[in-house]
Amino acid sequence: MNRDIVHRWQFRQSPEIVWEHLTKPELLSQWLMANDIKPEVGHKFRFTTNPLLKFGFDGIVYCEVLEVDPPKRLSYSWKGGPGNGKIALDSLVTWTLTLKDGGTELLLEHTGFSGMKNYFGYLMMKNGWGSKIRKRLGALLAGPGK
């Protein structure tokens, strides 16, 4: 099972222009979601969108800026859940911008998906789940490269 999302995208525009569209709330909201991002390490912000009831997601993505290196690299945590401060999805989004052919190659990595994994890990430790379920859930419970 593939746990990491990786997308590479080529833009004709310079890294500086693409960077602005990743870090300015009014520009970012034009293509992603309403937000209050600031490219400052430690800044906590939110994306807001429609809830996805099927996944137990209330429509708010809670983020914290972890890395800023303009106009090359930006990363933030990406957490969501059903509300009441419960976090079901805990992941990481990293943007890497590279000057290429007079434009920008934008690399998006959305990784570290956990949540369900942690929850079941906790249950297994707590209840000592048998080897059968460990095997059945093996693909799900094993983290990337572990």
């Binding site: 099972m1 593939n2 369900m116 799900l140």
Partner: peptide, 13 residues
């Protein structure tokens, strides 16, 4: 039923 996480990953992809 335990594959919800995979659905989530597919969704974000």
């Amino acid at each position: 039923g335990f594959d919800e996480l995979q659905e989530w990953i597919d969704y974000f992809d």
